[in-house]
Design a protein around this nucleic acid. Structure first.
Lengths: 248, 248
DNA sequence: CGACCCCTTGAGGCTTCTCAAAATCCGTGG
DNA sequence: CCACGGATTTTGAGAAGCCTCAAGGGGTCG
């Protein structure tokens, strides 16, 4: 079926406990979107969903593009970013499985979305998705919870960018990645960073060089060890917490 | 009835076109929350609402407090902020009529809310508000729209804090205030800033001194004039746009 | 084995912050 | 109406943190 196939097949066997490997993404989608929906509602959602697969460093959509689709990530990591005319870029957040992409109040995307890893998404035509929301209150409820949670994360990021030093930003970032890995049930030590130094910098409002210097400083004070550029051993999480800020 | 009274009286006359002056806030609330609700739904909302009045510089709730209530602003301006242990403060946003306060996914407030002006709010017990959401889909829909819009504003703020210079931040801020004044139907020139230099600084991730120096520089280049510290004449809006960033 | 990309390290400069003091505004009271 | 006191804003000088520019190191893949 290639890299794109329809989901209509999923709800045709809603009580099947074991789902074939080839449909593992259906499972993921079902878990993240449909958990509280009844079979008929799940069918309605699946009827308008298309699955897409992206390779690393692919653009899903670009800032300013017409927001024709809403996406839900079933696997992988995605970076959202905004750019200025002279090339300065700010990553506004990293998203993972279960997160929604491209759900806008306006008709155009306010950010760009680029994959960091292999990514599977469910894609919904915008109009159909909004109709679903109107018809299925639990879906709207879930989206509201997601949006509220993202808003709180954005406020944390605003505090970080507005008031924290480079060292505090890096420490906060590492702690955040540890929590994320734990929440996903992954290994938290050594921590795997799916993003480059440039992306870390663009996320934290720093340059590559400053990011690198902070990593080096943490390494030389034995708070972390670097197995490789993207594999970080956390030797002293409590020191990281102290560096990130005693308050908050 | 003092500064606190219940709203149950409002929906008892839903078809009354003229509402007494003493109930002007009911009107505002009705417009902002209940626009798309039928009379019975409006009654349900009003039944759990309490109106509160705050003076300038009062704390509505503090970061970390139990999120016992959800608020909707009917008039005035409110600043949301987060603080660090050593006193560094970051204002995450300014809210006005129609905006919701304290609607959290978690049980505690993630930010503090402080009034800038005289403020009227509708207050809802958290539990009752969530029950309303479950019972009245249009209310949930409106909240989702609001949350999505705020998320987009937060992303703009993240770009500003992560990548813009002091001058760009101030210019962006002034343009934002102009838009806000226009959207509210107020006078955009001279622009009235309800916040102090300290609050502008805490919003833009700058110090008071840097904010003041930028205002002075804009004044000396005739882009703006200062009638007083909080009354700004915009002489060259196009120059502000250019300074804010040619892209975006 | 070599080319390329990413990361690290170094030196110097610039923007913004810090600390300090003067000026202005505003409400209060004579 | 003017004088006073406190708070806010403005201005100045110097310091610091981060950025810019530049070069070197290390890993990966063909």
């Amino acid at each position: 079926m290639g890299s794109v196939h329809n989901f209509v097949s999923l709800p045709s066997r809603p009580q099947s406990p074991s789902i074939p490997d080839t449909c593992v993404n259906c499972t993921a989608r079902s878990l993240t979107i449909c958990a509280s929906l009844n079979p008929q509602e799940q069918a309605e959602v699946a009827a308008v969903a298309t699955e897409l697969v992206f390779k690393p460093r692919q653009i899903i959509f670009h800032e300013g593009d017409e927001a024709a689709f809403v996406y839900n990530i079933t696997s992988g990591s995605v970076a959202l970013s905004k750019s200025m005319a002279d090339g300065r870029r700010q990553i506004t957040g990293f998203l993972g499985p279960g997160d929604f992409l491209g759900f806008n109040a306006r008709a155009s995307h306010s950010v760009s979305a680029e994959t960091l890893t292999d990514v599977h998404v469910c894609r919904f035509p915008r109009r159909a998705f909004h109709e679903l929301l109107a018809r299925i209150p639990p879906l709207e409820h879930r989206l509201l919870t997601v949006a509220t949670t993202e808003l709180e994360a954005a406020q944390d990021q605003i505090l970080l960018l507005g008031r924290k030093t480079a060292m505090e930003r890096i420490s906060t970032f590492l702690l955040m990645q540890i929590e994320r890995a734990k929440a996903r049930g992954g290994v938290a030590n050594p921590l795997i960073l799916p993003m480059t130094r440039a992306e870390v910098g663009d996320y934290l409002g720093l340059t590559i060089e400053t990011v690198s210097r902070c990593f080096t400083k943490l390494r030389k004070s034995n708070v972390i060890s670097l197995l490789s550029a993207d594999r970080v051993c956390i030797n002293a999480p409590e020191a990281l917490s102290a560096l990130a800020d005693a308050s908050d």
